[in-house]
Design a protein around this nucleic acid. Sequence first.
RNA 1: GUCCCCAUCGUCUAGCCUGGCCCAGGACGCCGGCCUUUCAAGCCGGCAACACGGGUUCAAAUCCCGUUGGGGACACCA
Length: 471
Amino acid sequence: MSDIRVRFAPSPTGYLHIGGLRTALFNWLFARRHGGKFIVRIEDTDRHRSMDEVIEPIVNGLRWTGLDWDEGPYRQTERLDLYRHKAMTLLEQGRAYWCVCTPEELDVRRKAAQARGESVQYDGRCRARGLTAPAEPAALRFRSPHTGHTVIDDLIKGSIVFDNAVLDDLIILRSNGYPTYHLSVVVDDALMGITHVIRGDDHVTNTPRQVPLFEALGYPVPRFAHLPMILGADKSRLSKRHGATSVLAYRDMGYLPDALVNYLVRLGWSHGDQEIFSMRDMIEKFSFDHVQTSAAVFNPEKLQWLNAEYIKQGTSRCIAEQLRPLLEQQGYDCNGPVQPRGGLEAVIPHLRTRAKTLVEMVEWTMPYLTEPVAMDEAAAAKFLTPAMAPSLKKFAERVKTVEPFSQETVAPVLQALLEEDRLKMGAFAQPLRVALTGRTFSPGIYEVMDLLGRERTLRRIDHALQRIPPS
RNA sequence: GUCCCCAUCGUCUAGCCUGGCCCAGGACGCCGGCCUUUCAAGCCGGCAACACGGGUUCAAAUCCCGUUGGGGACACCA
């Protein structure tokens, strides 16, 4: 055990995306590595942008990937009194002041300053007014230090120095009484005993703004670790343009949670040349020493490769369990009368090297879960020809009686037939494959017959023969 | 514009802190071959990078400075 406490603090303004998940993962790994606590906190203090309905999907995303948390999810809107109380404390101590500038006025001034090429900081016009009980709507601003320097000793980037002159007097309480992010994050991180703030790179410039708040409130300042960003292929910030961005969308596209997590952990962290990490493995090996300092581009191909690796390595049972919901979503009945011999689990060993995603695997599984099988017309036209009919027919007749019906008994029959009819394996296997699966690609032909069983094998050959026009 | 961060194959990265083992290693992708009853998988091989310019040093991908390039932040968003 240790007293390390970290948190993942998403704002419910959209779905949990790849970048958010990676932040959560690194927090989780750090906590698990050191026997600390991982806390989930929903930062929903923006009444206009927060959406209750996305909280559940965010939490489900974490759950799906196996990132379990020890406390929470806390919601900041349930803790508003805390922030208001702390804000008032700062006001009483003279560390904060009322500001009656309206958002519209501020916006105009900001734009004007920008147009003149000047600093876009708040001009501080309410700082010295000493308003005590403003009649008009007022926001509370923190009196930031304007001299000296703030130094952050970042666990990933090392020492970063900021000139306090660049600090704004940031609003900590909106005129509607809600706290802003800067206040609530500091109060919560302190009250929740967060020892390490692990977050995205986009927060580095927030850090020198928040450190003085910790100090003004009399709280110890946590350690910081700023993770490099994940970018899209065009090196811009990852967004919907770069493909599905919701974590749950990856589940729906047939990705295994362990594969996604494995991909993400290698985006910005490494352990020598190792590519494949089990959860246990990464917990054991994770360290900030090997977290990258520069941004990484999200590469869907490599994710897919990893997913394929996990499909190849996972147990049949585990893969089948994850495949089942997708099959049912597509309308296949996994408990109906039409099943591969040996059940769904039995098809997995034959499909695992062929499918890169579970969605692809659904496609591969279809011939064994439907009756009659869907026929690819082009394949039928090419391979189910009058010339092949006699051999197919002969094959069906002969395997009708082999006992038992298995590769050991069927293979000699097929070999004999090839010799008799002077056919090459390929010349006969393809038509047979099309007859049995409706398509030109499948697992080995003996495996297919094994999965189908004698009855379905014979029925499918029969159907195929029926559709072959007489020569 | 101001501030901050970053910079090794197309991409993820090892190496950098503690200079020589690096005319730079691995992985994805791509290309070629082998295997083969199809499709995959597998195996073998190939292409491909230290952003640039100055220093420091006997020696620099590794240390220092600058340039360029990329990213991020500058809200009553988080």
